[in-house]
Design a protein around this nucleic acid. Structure first.
Lengths: 240, 240
DNA sequence: AGTTCAGATTGGCATAGACCAATAATGTTG
DNA sequence: CAACATTATTGGTCTATGCCAATCTGAACT
């Protein structure tokens, strides 16, 4: 192990840099030594090795499977979020996008949803919950709230696949501008189940409020992205 | 402790929910019981307590100071990132923005910076490194690369404070559109030193490429935000 | 009252070891 | 040969414990 140049740097952090050097240049999927082997090699405890590995996993540099081993992770994918739809964006990058609908229904809005969509609490709203996939891999968990009832949305979605296209062409809801709020969170059991990620790994939580040309809200969405596998891009063009 | 409704949920995660309930409604700054006290109260080990607390700290719900204790963290602040400047944005929200310049100089561009700014490697570029503060608190660490030499930038910045204003008014570099890439990372010793955060806490790393009306790059910036304390908002208006 | 220094308190890091759960490898059996 | 049962391997969780570092407390001393 290289010398501790900055006094006070924890051992697990030094080990982390060590492992980083170890995997530099290795192909994604390559197995690295087991935790027990690393602990012995660097004369430390498995606890310390696990702290180092855990951070590298959280950063998306390593992956691990219980009973199998720890391996070099594939590089992050980029998700471009524009005014256009998820599926069109992905396809334009040469990726294979897909969606799995988990739930679709009409509810009476609570205070939070009503405030965001500019409705009165109790007004009907449509709730659409989906898993977004790219190349068969879960990318995000989305819950979208749309104002009103939107009859036969399910069949329209099955045909088109693109929510924004259906909103515009069938219901006349045209998105003119959006506001994205990005923050971090850590994966809990729900995220682990839906997105197949690690407990405690960082998430990008994106809230989107979309409005039409009149400034009337037409969509309120909460998306949960795997922070270890994806980046998020948003383009802002000035009105001129 | 409430029953383990989902079989297999780790004890540290149950404890996390427990502590969340404990701090619900408490004012920011309120101290919670010590790690040793919590371990005894919930008949578990300090290691498990620390795993639960550490995740709550990473999520920005708790803070802790060695030798002092663990306390309820203040709510996240919102940073709106528009085409306008950091300082104007912050002031419009009633916050007190500030900057500390760490370094300013002219360099010959390496391959990465040259590619992003549309230059040839070796062309001169200006590098500006700053810490962004809101209400005296470090918010972000920024390194900006601007094409060319920009003479007397330092004194101009000292007068105006706003980089975008100086770029436009003095050097004729007008930002017409930007592309932000957001991803997660974990805090290392450098981030801890500059932003005063926890080792291993999640960061929002934002890369911004700004172009003028002709599509010529005028700024390439890497910003590191504290994910536990801030959210990031970007507004996209359609050209129509 | 103010200062200084010693101890107690609290979080930060690390160790050693145990057992569980998922996977892979192996051997056995029909 | 295929299907199944057994065993070994590997990561996941948890315990118990020790020492270090930063902070706070309070007594002793100006």
């Amino acid at each position: 192990m290289p010398p501790d140049l900055v006094p006070g740097t924890p051992k697990y952090y030094l080990l982390k840099t060590e492992v980083l050097g170890l995997i530099a240049g290795l192909k994604p999927g390559t197995l690295i030594p087991t935790e027990r082997a690393l602990a012995e090699k660097y004369t430390t405890s498995r606890t310390t090795v696990r702290q180092a590995i855990s951070e590298l996993v959280a950063e998306g540099k390593l992956g691990r499977i219980q009973g199998h081993g720890t391996f070099v992770a594939p590089p992050k994918m980029t998700h471009v979020r524009q005014l256009t739809s998820f599926s069109d964006d992905a396809r334009s990058q040469g990726l294979r996008p897909d969606s799995r609908m988990l739930a679709l229904g009409v509810f009476t809005s609570d205070a939070g949803v009503a405030a965001r969509l500019g409705l009165e609490p109790g007004d009907p709203v449509t709730r659409l919950e989906r898993i977004r996939l790219i190349d068969e891999e879960p990318l995000a968990h989305e819950v979208a709230w749309l104002p009103g009832k939107l009859p036969r949305l399910k069949s329209h979605l099955a045909t088109s696949g693109s929510l924004y296209a259906v909103m515009a062409e069938v219901y006349g809801l045209r998105v003119a501008d959006v506001e994205d709020t990005v923050e971090t969170a850590l994966a809990g059991p729900e995220d682990v189940r839906l997105l197949g990620m690690e407990m405690g790994a960082p998430l990008l939580v994106v809230h989107r409020l979309a409005r039409d040309a009149m400034g009337t809200p037409v969509e309120w969405t909460r998306s949960t992205f795997r922070g270890d596998r994806f980046r998020f891009v948003s383009r802002v063009k000035s009105g001129g």
